[in-house]
């Protein structure tokens, strides 16, 4: 150890003095000024050293509040060999090699993927089933009120037809465990077109346009069963929770990205939302197909209404025609799944 060049700042004023640091045999660190009268000595154990971060300046802190600043990182490491905390040393090693950096990148992407694709949905599922029904009811009432204000109109179906549909629905739910609290709401779809959706709090909305599109009530039964499947799994609530949780999680984890977070945090959530919904749709489809099988209804009815919805969407009508389809897996895939159950 032959002299570490540093600048000494006493902490009282901005004056800095060039000094040389040397360790003697008794583990005393001598601080000697090269052009001034500084001549100090501290036991090495009482001197604290800042972490090594890249090639940035390093500091030695003395017990009296004075410090030394130096760019000679290697000499500092040599001086404090064995005294630097293991975590700090490991961190610097990790930051030192390109291959370690690549490993960090791979781990980061993998961990973020697992957290968002698996961890968040699992947590949301737990939370959704544990949440008091009152909370879900509240969110659901809110959602329906908003939809009524923005998109939906009261149903224009004849009174007798409405009663028929309600009876059909009551027959269905009486045979499904836990479905007694679910409610059917008939609405004119307006911009939402032929559509059906399951809101939290057990509300199923079915539009007049969908009712008119169906050629057989068993087709509607299949769609309603699909929506009941959504409700039983609290899909909507889970989706809301997943999206907000994922956004918060990413924003929190990426605290290091600062300015970019607002922009970047939204993107992965939006990308992943599609696949969240896909899994939910499959679950709901499975429930519907099970239901149809139990009632002795051919899955063809489900396939038929799906096909007709798809046809209705295709020609010319751009967006808004059927949100129901856009968030769902490809219709062909679903029809094939329905047929596979035959």
């Amino acid at each position: 150890m032959s002299g570490l060049q540093a600048v000494y700042f006493d902490g009282e004023s901005t004056d800095g003095q060039p000094v040389t640091l040397e360790l003697d045999a008794r583990q005393l660190l001598h601080v000697r000024g090269t052009g001034c009268g500084i001549d100090l000595a501290w036991p090495l154990v009482e001197v604290r050293v800042s972490e090594r971060i890249g090639a940035s300046r390093r500091r030695l802190y003395f017990p009296d509040g004075a410090q030394c600043e130096t760019a000679d990182n290697d000499a500092v490491d040599a001086l404090f060999e064995g005294r630097v905390p293991a975590a700090s040393w490991l961190l610097h090693r990790w930051e030192s090699g390109l291959s370690y950096a690549v490993a960090a990148l791979v781990i980061t992407v993998a961990a973020a993927w697992v957290a968002v694709v698996w961890g968040v949905p699992a947590l949301a599922k737990q939370a959704a089933f544990a949440l008091p029904a009152a909370t879900e009811t509240y969110i659901g009432r809110d959602a329906l009120a908003t939809l009524d204000k923005l998109v939906l109109q009261p149903s224009k179906l004849p009174e007798t037809r409405q009663r028929e549909l309600r009876e059909l629905y009551a027959r269905m739910t009486s045979g499904i465990q836990g479905a007694a609290t679910y409610r059917l709401e008939l609405r004119q779809g307006g911009r939402a077109g032929a559509n059906a959706f399951a809101l939290p709090a057990g509300i199923i909305v079915m539009t007049d346009e969908l009712v008119e599109l169906a050629k057989d009530d068993r087709e509607l039964e299949a769609v309603l069963a699909h929506e009941i499947g959504h409700l039983r799994q609290h899909h909507m609530l889970r989706l809301v929770m997943q999206n907000s949780a994922a956004a918060v999680l990413i924003a929190f984890m990426a605290g290091d990205l600062t300015s970019l977070t607002s922009l970047a945090a939204a993107a992965p959530t939006m990308l992943l939302q599609a696949s969240f919904t896909r899994d939910f749709e499959r679950e709901a489809d499975d429930f519907s197909l099970d239901y149809l099988a139990k009632r002795g209804i051919a899955p063809e009815y489900f396939a038929a209404i799906l096909r007709r919805l798809e046809e209705k969407k295709r020609p010319g009508r751009k967006d808004g025609a059927s949100d129901y389809l856009s968030t769902h897996p490809s219709t062909r895939e679903r029809i094939e799944r329905a047929r596979g159950k035959i």
Partner: peptide, 26 residues
């Protein structure tokens, strides 16, 4: 005196540990 290659390594290790600790390390 900062360099991009050096800061890239610091940044990615920071990010990795932040993700693994669910943000605590951030």
């Amino acid at each position: 005196t900062g360099s991009a290659s050096e800061y890239f390594r610091i940044w990615i290790v920071n990010l990795c540990l932040s993700v693994l600790t669910l943000g605590i390390y951030s």
